[in-house]
Design a binder for these strands. Structure first.
Lengths: 182, 182
DNA sequence: CCTACTTGCAACAACGCTGATGCATGTCGT
DNA sequence: ACGACATGCATCAGCGTTGTTGCAAGTAGG
């Protein structure tokens, strides 16, 4: 089993990942030097913790994917669909608000792919239960409904307007189900 | 007044802009060499038509903004709000499908900013008429309604599924107004 | 037909970035 | 307290990219 990392190593790695998310969200082509500066460590330290730029980006994607998977798994399948939808939405928004760049970065990393496949399964299951209980209309294409859901999550997280996350989730779910028409 | 360009110059510039949109949509960091290869011209030719990479990207944004403005202006204010909404949506989708990268690229170019301001005005006017005639609910925040509209346009254009543009527009407007709930 | 312009080629300088190195100093965990 | 590890610094090589140049050959338009 892997030896536990020293506390200062753990702190440094977290600082680098957080800085990388912020800096790269603003400029995906930002240099390792800029990420290091934002982390408060030397560039050589970034290279010691993450051998290459690609390794750092992969670590970022893996970290975000783990938060994502945990956010979705925190809501039990047994919850009523509408309640579950609200809770999943709020949870995912929290992750998206903090790790938006990492979550949307395309990657071939298998751990990330596994998490995404798992989350997709959970989402399909939740949308099926929602349809079965009349929360979602039966005549709407399920793939399209999910794409609309993801688009609204993306839009809500992309330009947060300092509103409480639960209120953002409530508005999102309301718009998803009712639209903005009469 | 500017002298009309030679026909071969016009063809070359259009080929470069189209190739730039395709290549950069796939990889925003793609080199001038790759754009040139995709255009079917030499890299020196790209540099002769567009002095710098930045100049090329600006020209791309300006071109896309012009198509965008024209797409919105093609629908008269006098049209009933629901009809206008459908027509604007289909028109904007067509532009977005062809120039998605250029349209989402942030730029400080003043002509692009002017077009976007103009389009925003037209959209605000259309949404106000839609609210006044009951097409949109009066209790929905107008800014949020527009953000939802843009998010659905973005999602529809981002992963086109070979459906007729008018059908895509119809589905989009239906989802905007009714959501995917009961 | 002819002039002016366009384009391709090869080459070049300059630049920023990445990844790596050795050594001195600081920190962590037992 | 001490050994092992972490970190900062300065430096370096290698790389890809950008922007530029001169010249020969091709094309457009009057």
């Amino acid at each position: 089993m892997e030896r536990t990392k020293r506390a200062d190593t753990e702190r440094t790695e977290q600082a680098i990942l957080r800085a990388a998310e912020r800096v790269l969200a603003d400029d995906p082509a930002a240099s390792m030097e800029r990420i290091a500066a934002a982390s408060g460590v030397a560039r050589t330290t970034v290279h010691r913790r993450f051998a290459t730029r690609e390794a750092l980006l992969d670590a970022l994607s893996v970290w975000a994917a783990r938060q994502f998977g945990a956010a979705v798994d925190a809501v039990p399948d047994a919850a009523p669909p509408l309640v579950a939808l609200h809770q999943v939405t709020a949870n995912v928004l929290r992750v998206k608000l903090g790790w938006g760049f990492a979550m949307s970065r395309p990657t071939t990393n298998t751990e990330v792919a596994d998490v995404h496949a798992h989350v997709l399964d959970r989402c399909i299951g939740l949308f099926r239960r929602a349809r079965d209980t009349g929360v979602l209309r039966a005549d709407v294409d399920p793939d399209w409904a999910r794409r609309v859901y993801y688009a609204l999550i993306h839009e809500t997280a992309d330009r947060r307007d300092d509103t409480d996350v639960d209120a953002l989730a409530a508005r999102l779910v309301d718009t998803l189900l009712r639209g903005v028409g009469p």
